[in-house]
Design a protein around this nucleic acid. Structure first.
Length: 278
DNA sequence: AAACAAACCTGTGCGC
DNA sequence: TGCGCACAGGTTTGTT
């Protein structure tokens, strides 16, 4: 579910509400969310730790703690991080719950339990989470270099969308934003990556920046199932700006001629306008 | 090397 | 109203 704009919205919310706060009485419910390490390591690592700052790389959240540990959180498809009032009812599927020193509650909620929480000593972060080392540049944190990206696209021959979804090429794009980016850049998602010229890739990088910045400004996309919400339970707004995602068979609002098509790329539903994307 | 398939789970929406 | 199936924002692993 959550892609870069949603995770960034969560990061900003947590930075506002959690930095300087201390975790108390941490409880890990379902062990599956602690599968990378253990229930004990999460509880021991978080308990009495104060949050110093919160970073994000792609879809990974990194909570820096004052006990030389980092908490890595990945929401995968259905994860949520919520800051609740003590009096609020505990949500179903709350797998990591902590009381905070101001009386509020931190909750990691995840019905499908694809998401996970890892708490490790800083020195062990990359051995326990080696995928962090394989992440490509984050468009917001690092910025993208169009010529580097062009080189990557030219070295190989994969479909454009497949490249955009590859977290080692660009960190943070997912199914919604990959489609929206291709549409803005007027490029078909099933185009061979090595068929793009430098101008195309510059257009693509501009589109990535525009879409992500706009989506972050709007607090991300909350789809009909309402699964993604910010830490205060608020929905995002960017779903109202989607030009292709979830608009199969509707007329393209950009060219007003094409009918949005849905195809499958890398087992993911892929939406594009056959008229304005080439 | 790239494409494809399945796996990990639960919830929801749709057609019948 | 109820049932069964398809599908969902992600990532990893294994097979063609």
């Amino acid at each position: 579910m959550p892609e870069l704009p949603e995770v960034e919205t969560v990061r900003r919310g947590l930075t506002r509400e959690l930095v300087g706060r201390r975790f108390e009485s941490v409880r890990v419910g379902r062990e599956r969310v602690a599968r990378r390490t253990s229930r004990d390591l999460i509880e021991l690592g978080l308990e009495h730790a104060t949050v110093l700052s919160i970073d994000r790389r792609g879809k990974y959240l990194l909570l820096r703690l004052d006990n030389d540990c980092t908490a890595m959180i990945h929401l995968r498809m259905s994860g949520q991080v919520l800051i609740q009032q003590a009096a609020d009812a505990e949500r179903a599927h709350s797998h990591v719950v902590a009381e905070l020193d101001d009386g509020r509650r931190f909750a990691f909620v995840d019905p499908r339990t694809f998401g996970e929480v890892v708490v490790v000593q800083n020195a062990e972060l990359h051995s326990v989470c080696p995928e962090l080392l394989r992440l490509g540049p984050d468009p917001i944190v690092d910025g993208l270099d169009a010529m580097d990206l062009w080189a990557t696209f030219s070295r190989r021959r994969r479909r454009l969308k497949s490249m955009l979804l590859d977290q080692s090429v660009i960190a943070g794009l997912g199914n919604i934003y990959a489609d929206e980016v291709c549409h803005r850049a007027r490029l078909r998602p099933d185009r061979a990556s090595d068929s793009l010229n430098a101008r195309h890739v510059i257009r693509l990088v501009d589109s990535i920046d525009e879409v992500l910045v706009a989506a972050i400004e709007r607090g991300g996309s909350t789809l009909g199932d309402g699964q993604y919400v910010a830490i205060d339970g608020m929905s995002g707004d960017f779903q109202n700006e989607h030009r292709v995602y979830g608009r199969t068979k509707q007329r393209c609002d950009s060219c007003r001629r094409g009918i949005i098509r849905r195809i499958i790329i890398d087992q993911r539903g892929t939406h594009f306008c056959p008229v304005c994307q080439r």
